[in-house]
Design a protein around this nucleic acid. Structure first.
Lengths: 143, 143
DNA sequence: GTAATTCCTACTAAACCGGTAAGTTATAGG
DNA sequence: CCTATAACTTACCGGTTTAGTAGGAATTAC
């Protein structure tokens, strides 16, 4: 029940880009250097963000990555959902991909759905701009 | 970010024992049969529950397992914490075991702490009796 | 053309997950 | 005391995921 480095690093990349949101492309070397994360590993993570439309990229000299939206228009939830695959605590909740044969008799399913909802609601209410501003308190976003 | 079979099966065992809470010891064979889970695998899961004091056990003929408390006195949270190890979404929150060197500069830490709190609050409010009764609706326990 | 940069594919060591197998110890009933 | 039952213990194992590493191809600015 852990968020992997993929999701955590993705958030750090997004925060870094929000902090250097000048309109210019930021090369991955810079981000990797500032965040002290392997550039090669970051490549695979940034690739997901790029393919999902969260980032624009430009190859070659003067190239790099930049945000496609304002920092306040990215929710932590959507970043994590793309990099982690899904935030569902159990696979049975990933409809319609997954259909558990026990669903009709499962006494825990509604409890899991409730947990999923609580997590998504919380993470939907936090933006990359909120993280970059670093003015959060643990209880701030329990809406 | 998934709850493993250990946690899910543990809940099913607890629900099963709540439904057969006659005061007698219930052999694991019965539970495994009803729940259609490998008895051998369940052994390792039930062992955790027993060592944590959630269950009493008796060996030999007439033996088995039974609850040590009333079903309403077990929260889903404590069952999952024992079987999953911890519900913390990132290791940095597992104090004092883990101390991340970036904690002082980490812009996401409070956000993760908030997620952890939201999850624990939700799961603390649901008991094994609630699950056994099967009267839950997804939104019921967002307190 | 050259340097910078993203993009793509393949590989790998270690950890974790979901079990299986075999045998040991304790208990109840006859 | 004997036997069946059932918990307990230890060891093992194949598959998947995680967290990277490596090497090169394609693209762009100057």
């Amino acid at each position: 029940m852990k968020i992997s480095t993929r999701g955590r690093y993705a958030l750090r990349v997004m925060i870094d880009l929000a902090e250097h949101n000048s309109g210019e492309y930021i090369p991955l070397t810079d981000i990797a250097g500032r965040q002290e994360i392997s550039e090669k590993y970051l490549e695979s993570i940034v690739s997901m963000l790029s393919k999902s439309g969260f980032l624009m990229s430009l190859r070659g000299k003067g190239g790099g990555y930049r945000l496609t939206r304002l920092p306040e228009d990215y929710s932590v939830r959507e970043i994590l959902e793309v990099t982690e695959g899904s935030l569902a605590p159990i696979a049975c909740l990933e409809q319609p991909t997954n259909t558990c044969p026990r669903a009709s008799v499962c006494k825990s399913l509604d409890m899991w759905q409730g947990l999923y909802d609580v997590m998504r609601d919380y993470l939907s209410g936090i933006s990359i701009a909120d993280l970059a501003a670093d003015t959060m308190e643990p209880g701030n976003f329990i809406i």
